[in-house]
Design a binder for these strands. Structure first.
Length: 643
DNA sequence: GTAGTTGTGGTTTTT
DNA sequence: CCACAACTAC
């Protein structure tokens, strides 16, 4: 989480840390009381997915009916509410929750066996520790005598309970935040935390920060107009203190290439006029959009940085290298072990692994311990045994270096494991992999320099919690490219927001689901992006966009119609087909539940109708299973009689 | 048994 | 379009 819990200790100096990092430090220090082993590995989403798949399988459930992503979301929601597996088991009522409960119990068993904690466990275990051990709570409360929590609107219930426990002894707690900037509801952030702060701490002084020193009135007007469309909010007025300046621009481009190129050229112009690169940022909804922009910036010779925190650590070459480190630090981490045992290929296949695993189970030892005793596994050929012992020996040799600087160890692993060689062999098609590895090793070297007693364990636990905030380098004079989420808390003279299209912003995954809440969160996301801009703001969309290899005509984001009138449209003619030729026709209204037919997608059911006159949008779930946003005037939908 | 090949399916945001 | 899973050829 981005919000930081800063604790100001009189003698120790101020600590600035994210909630999760604080939890890691607490859990390591009070491991016994918290019921964890200190060398735990922190599992991210990919690792969690592997574990939950295994848990679902162990419970004899069909992954088709119990999709891993769904299950993880459900477990995460429970953990964020501090409902552990046992507590949940006691309160299941329907079939699904009974199955979920079994998966939950099994999942926790698996993680415990691997000596791993997921992100939610870090919070849950810390909260339980603080609430269950008064001694620990008092000690920490005394150590952190003043508590300041930023971005409080994005705290979840577990974080709330941790903060409450830490402040319980002294009540020196200060929280800052803005409910209109809550963009992590999907991750369990509970807006009630900030709304209820005054009731939780009755003596608290409330300071409203309504004056905005950052943005021009032009930008604030657009932000204000947009966010006012959210029904579920406390109205608030932003008061501009700066004089009016340039108009906000809303631009339409032919396709995503043209959009990226136009943005790059406009940035080029700003730079030529004397603006620093660091003063400009480009925001997008999904990481996948960064590539086109990157290419455009290269073409226009503009220095840029792609701010990617988590994204970087999802790269397979990075995951491979880190998996080696994880296994060295925590041999129980079979998820990482499974990843590296045949990466790069060294002739250890699935069947071999299964045999060693069953040997491990029979003898009640871990997979790694079984690998060490590979000689004793009868079902293996001598050749295979040799490969296994060679692999284990390599790891054991690396182990000599797990305390001490990390960069040399990472370099050594990269070379001696064969990763370097296999990367070089596959090069040509993608030379960025080697670059990424070098970046990782450089970052490790930086860690070594900044840390008194560097170790692989400490390094791994730190980078697992690496955030987008850490990824942004304000020192470099480069244009920043990042997702709207990553933009939170930052500000720039010039801001470009691209891809303001239905399905992208708001994202289709959050359109018309359950209720309006998800749409409102998308609106807040754009609001956050807009309010990052100090002086110049350009929001754009492409008329055609290629997604997954298919070029489709897009629909401008409904949010563009909610910006009020305080902006200039692009001078280009709006050349959507049909519009010029045909006189405006009355737009038919749809209601949710209405069955409709589309010439390409066939039959579907209306999920939602957004009445915007000529620009009305209808969201339809088609029988093919896909949900699409369509502009009524182009969709050619016909209403079908409900039977 | 392993490794390369074809096929399927799913597909945001991040700690 | 990409990652992964089952499949087939060594």
């Amino acid at each position: 989480m981005r919000q930081r819990a800063a604790a100001l200790g009189a003698s120790a100096g101020a600590h600035i840390s994210t909630f999760h990092s604080l939890c890691v430090r607490i859990l390591r220090r009070y491991a016994d009381s918290a019921g964890v082993r200190p060398a735990f590995t922190i599992y991210d989403q990919a690792d969690q997915t592997r574990c939950i798949k295994r848990a679902v399988k162990d419970c004899d459930l069909d992954p088709a009916n119990f999709p891993p992503a769904r299950m993880l979301d459900a477990l995460s929601a429970l953990k964020n509410k501090l409902v552990d597996a046992d507590a949940f088991a006691a309160r299941t009522d329907d079939f699904f929750s009974r199955m979920l409960s079994r998966v939950y119990l099994r999942y926790q068993q698996i993680l415990a066996g691997l000596n791993a904690l997921d992100f939610d466990d870090l919070l849950l275990k810390t909260a339980f520790l603080l609430e269950g051990c008064p001694d620990v709570r008092r000690e920490l409360s005394d150590r952190f005598r003043f508590l300041l929590i930023d971005e409080y609107q994005d705290t979840n219930h577990a974080q709330y309970r941790i903060a409450r426990a830490l402040a319980s002894e002294h009540a020196n707690i200060c929280a800052t935040g803005d409910p209109d900037q809550s963009i992590y509801r999907w991750r369990g952030a509970d807006i009630r935390n900030i709304l209820a702060f005054e009731t939780d701490w009755p003596d608290a002084t409330i300071v409203k920060l309504e004056e905005n020193f950052r943005s021009t009135p032009n930008i604030l007007a657009v932000a204000d107009s947009l966010i006012a469309f959210n029904k579920n909010r406390k109205p608030k007025k932003l008061i501009a203190t700066r004089p009016a300046d340039d108009d906000v621009l809303v631009d339409a481009f032919d396709d995503e290439m043209a959009e990226a190129e136009a943005v790059a050229r406009r940035v080029r112009t700003l730079i030529d006029e004397g603006s620093s690169c660091r003063d400009t940022a480009v925001f997008y909804r999904v990481n996948a959009m960064s590539r086109l922009l990157e290419e455009a910036f290269v073409r226009n010779r503009i220095p840029y940085q792609i701010v990617r925190g988590v994204e970087f650590y999802n790269r397979s070459e990075i995951r491979d290298l880190l998996a080696y480190l994880k296994v060295l630090v925590n041999p129980d981490d079979e998820i990482s072990l499974a990843r590296i045992i045949n990466t790069p290929a060294r002739g250890i296949g699935k069947i071999t692994i299964d045999r060693v695993r069953s040997f491990a189970v029979r003898n009640g030892i871990t997979l790694y311990a079984a690998l060490k005793k590979a000689e004793a596994v009868e079902s293996l050929s001598g050749k295979v045994k040799d490969r296994l012992t060679g692999f284990v020996k390599m790891l054991e040799d690396f182990k000599d270096y797990i305390t001490g600087p990390v960069a040399p160890l990472a370099e050594r692993i990269f070379q001696e494991s064969g990763l370097a060689q296999s990367l070089a062999a596959g090069a040509g098609k993608d030379d960025s992999a080697l670059e990424n590895v070098n970046e990782l090793i450089n970052a490790a070297a930086q860690y070594d320099l900044n840390t008194e007693e560097p170790s692989a364990l400490d390094y791994l636990q730190q980078i697992s919690l690496f955030s987008d905030a850490d990824a942004y380098d304000p020192a470099g004079d480069r244009v920043a490219l990042m997702t709207l989420h990553a933009a939170k808390g930052l500000e720039f003279e010039n801001v470009f927001i691209v891809g303001a299209e239905e399905g992208l912003l708001p994202h289709e995954k959050s359109n018309g689901r359950e209720d309006e809440d998800e749409l409102e969160e998308e609106r807040r996301l754009l609001f956050v992006g807009i309010t990052r801009a100090k002086t110049r703001l350009q929001i754009s969309h492409a008329k055609y966009r290629t997604v997954r290899g298919q070029t489709l005509r897009t629909i401008p984001s409904q949010f563009l119609f909610e910006l009020g009138s305080g902006f200039s449209e692009s001078p280009e003619e709006d050349d959507y087909p049909d519009q010029a030729d045909e006189p405006p026709r009355p737009i038919p209204a749809f209601v949710a539940g209405q069955i409709v037919r589309h010439k390409t997608f066939g039959l579907g059911r209306v999920k939602k109708f957004v009445d915007m006159g000529q620009n009305s949008i209808v969201v339809v779930t088609f029988n093919t299973g896909q949900t699409k946003s369509l502009m009524v005037k182009y969709a050619g939908l016909s209403k079908v009689q409900n039977t």
